[in-house]
């Protein structure tokens, strides 16, 4: 049986992890390769690296990082953040990324999804969608949730699927950072609407939140950052508890 995936997310700036990490066994808390290796060993099913650098050197630094991650870890990983062209994706995949995640660039120019799928295949194109509720309806937001659009989350998700994306990474801006649980109502609706995997993101604070998003949110995978970085939840413990709840996980 296909298992539900647990995905730690690492924010990267200029080749280093940012936001705090609280791993006592790390020699260098800022080294993404070292952190990735620890997560892989602890049972993470996949990793996401989200690059938030804005420097001109960004592309080169990110490609080097991807190369070193691929060299070191033996689980799949996705790279996102500021990817806007076929050339960007080509460099990252050639350096060993398994998947890339695109977000604002796809909203600005939806044909980008078709172009990437035609060249690299659906399996490696993840479309990340940031959305929040405005007057009761879910609206897509850009630039890390800062810029609102009039685009409806569900319309956009359907379009993304039709254009060939292999997966959707949905972050609820209303839930992100709250540690109050994932946006399970919207997730369940999304999961029923599209026939590609949906990754839940935003709101993880406890083990029961993961159980809820798999059971009620119908998510195929769940992504979180700080609860893992600060060791509030250990991946092993999380997976054992999910298993006890009858959720298929890889242990």
């Amino acid at each position: 049986m296909l298992t539900k995936r647990i995905i730690p997310c690492l924010d990267i700036k200029d080749g280093r992890t940012v936001k705090g990490v609280n791993f006592v066994d790390l020699r260098d808390a800022g080294d993404p390769v070292e952190l990735a290796a620890i997560y892989a060993k602890e049972g993470a099913d996949e990793l996401v690296f989200l690059d938030i650098s804005a420097t001109e050197e960004k592309r080169k630094t990110l490609a080097e990082l991807v190369y070193h991650v691929a060299e070191t870890i033996n689980i799949p990983f996705t790279v996102g953040g500021g990817i806007s062209s076929v050339e960007d994706v080509d460099i990252l995949l050639k350096n060993g990324a398994d998947k890339v995640s695109i977000n604002s660039s796809a909203v600005k120019r939806p044909e980008l999804i078709n172009e990437l799928v035609a060249k690299f295949g659906s399996q490696c194109i993840v479309v990340a969608i940031d959305a929040k509720q405005v007057n009761g309806s879910w609206k897509v937001h850009l630039v890390g949730g800062k810029v609102p659009t009039e685009i409806d989350l569900f319309d956009w998700a359907k379009e993304v699927e039709e254009r060939g994306a292999g997966e959707i990474l949905f972050t609820s801006m209303d839930h992100d950072g709250t540690k109050n649980g994932f946006a399970n109502d919207a997730l369940a609706k999304l999961s029923d609407l599209v026939n590609i995997p949906v990754i839940a993101s935003g709101g993880a604070g406890s083990v029961s939140h993961f159980t809820d998003t798999f059971k009620n949110g119908k998510a195929d995978a769940a992504l979180a950052a700080s609860v893992f970085h600060f060791k509030e939840i250990e991946i092993n413990d999380l997976k054992n508890e999910l298993k006890e709840e009858g959720i298929p996980v890889r242990i």
């Binding site: 298992t3 099913d45 996949e46 799949p76 398994d98 659906s122 292999g166 997966e167 026939n195 195929d220």
Partner: peptide, 30 residues
């Protein structure tokens, strides 16, 4: 859901390609 993305189990394994690999081991597919 298509594609199948993630970790699934292999069973009914034969040949030395799987020497030492327990039945129902998890492997990654896309």
């Amino acid at each position: 859901k298509v594609p199948q993305i993630g970790w699934n189990q292999i069973t009914g394994i034969k040949t030395d390609l799987f020497k030492g690999i327990p039945d129902k081991s998890y492997i990654y597919l896309v």
